[in-house]
Amino acid sequence: MKRRPSGIERPTIVDVADVADVSRQTVSRVLADHPRVAPATRLRVKEAIEKLGYRPNRMARALVTRTSLTFGFAAIDMQDLHFGDTCSGMQAAAREHGYYLVVTELDIDDERGMGTLETLLTLGVDGVALFPSFLQDSDIEQFAATSGCPVVVIGRECQIPNVVSIAMDETAAADLVVGHLVDRGRKRIGILMNEMFPEVVHGRYVALHRAIAHHTTVASAPVEAERPKISHGRRAATTLLQNHPDLDAVVGFNDTMAMGALLACDDLGLRVPQDVAVVGYDGITFGAIANPPLTTIVQDSIGMADAAFRALLSRVKDGSPPEGESRLWQPELLIRGSS
């Protein structure tokens, strides 16, 4: 590709048309891969593009097509190991369809994240995906109603007008976890919960308690809440196990909290799984190299992200107002040495 020396103006579509000896409209048709362009003409235009190092102006194209070919993707915590798989799934789908992602982290101090979302809109994104958000349902509903673009929530089931939510079936996941522990003879299960985002946590908390209550051989579950990190999970599990020495199983809100529980058991001289079984959620890669390897609920993060992208894309292409919809994905229990 021919490179321009610094300081030289970027070539325009007019320059390409002049070099290829065609009209601007013909260059536009080639860029849009329009079928009604002669092969020889198409080749000549592509050679001119290569020679000049021309790059289409996405902003100019957006003015014509009324689409920016970008989606916003906002997360609560980019350090969350589960976020990587979800982002990868969104990016793969975007690349397949010629879209780009504008990825950002929601700032809880900026109007509880609403300021971040408003900034995305100023960039002209065609739609917004939230993963999973600490925003209240009322905030999401207001944003969806006023944004003028489709909105998808990933990883959290919600019933909000004009919003599609794509999430794991929490009831099915809790039944798998508790059923497995009961099958292993566990009778006293403690729970580590995320203290930060009640809107996100509520569904998992309720599902686990219902599953435990369903089994008459299992006592009611004590709960300890902390931030969803390994160090905080370690601290919460230590408190939980010291306050309830009869516990024979611990379920972490996510894999990082569960991995913290493994460390807490080691600190307290408890054997896993002989004395205490430990189970997490999310199926992150690092769970496989924990000591012992972590039993976990696996959700198809990449598949869910792909579905979220396609939900946004279909709304953009249809041009119809989005309808509220909740799509549940079935989890799997990956049994390893920790239980």
Rank of each mutant, 00 (worst) to 15 (best):
P5A: 12
S6Q: 13
S6W: 07
R10S: 14
R10I: 06
V14E: 14
D21F: 00
T26F: 00
A38P: 00
R44K: 14
K46W: 13
A48L: 04
I49N: 01
I49M: 07
G53D: 06
Y54N: 00
N57T: 04
M59F: 10
R61C: 01
V64C: 00
V64H: 04
R66K: 14
T67F: 05
T67I: 11
L69E: 02
F73Q: 00
F73N: 02
F73Y: 12
A74T: 05
A75F: 05
D80L: 09
D80A: 13
F83E: 02
G84E: 13
G84I: 13
D85C: 08
G89I: 10
A94N: 01
R95D: 14
E96P: 02
E96V: 03
H97V: 04
G98P: 03
Y99N: 01
V102D: 12
T104R: 05
E111Y: 07
E111G: 09
T116F: 09
G124F: 10
D126Q: 13
G127Y: 11
A129Y: 13
P132W: 01
S133W: 03
D137V: 01
D139N: 08
Q142W: 13
A145D: 15
C149F: 12
C149S: 11
P150V: 02
G155Q: 00
Q159H: 12
V164N: 03
M168R: 02
D169M: 08
D169G: 06
D169T: 04
A174K: 01
D175R: 15
V177G: 00
V178W: 00
G179R: 08
V182P: 10
D183Y: 01
I189H: 03
I189Y: 09
M193T: 12
M193V: 04
F197L: 09
P198C: 11
H202N: 08
A207L: 09
H209G: 09
I212P: 02
H214W: 12
V218E: 08
S220E: 11
R227M: 11
K229M: 12
G233M: 01
R235N: 12
R235K: 10
R235I: 07
A236Q: 08
A237R: 05
T239I: 07
T239S: 11
H244K: 09
P245S: 05
D246M: 12
D246S: 15
L247F: 12
L247R: 02
A258L: 09
A258C: 08
A261G: 03
A261Y: 00
A261L: 02
L263I: 08
A264V: 11
A264S: 14
C265M: 05
D266K: 14
V272M: 11
V276D: 01
A277Q: 05
V278H: 00
V278G: 01
G283A: 09
G287E: 06
I289N: 05
P292R: 04
P292T: 01
A307Y: 14
A307S: 13
A311S: 15
D318S: 15
S320D: 13
P321R: 08
G324D: 00
G324Q: 06
E325I: 05
S326Q: 11
R327C: 11
W329E: 12
E332D: 14
L333Q: 07
L334W: 08
S339F: 04
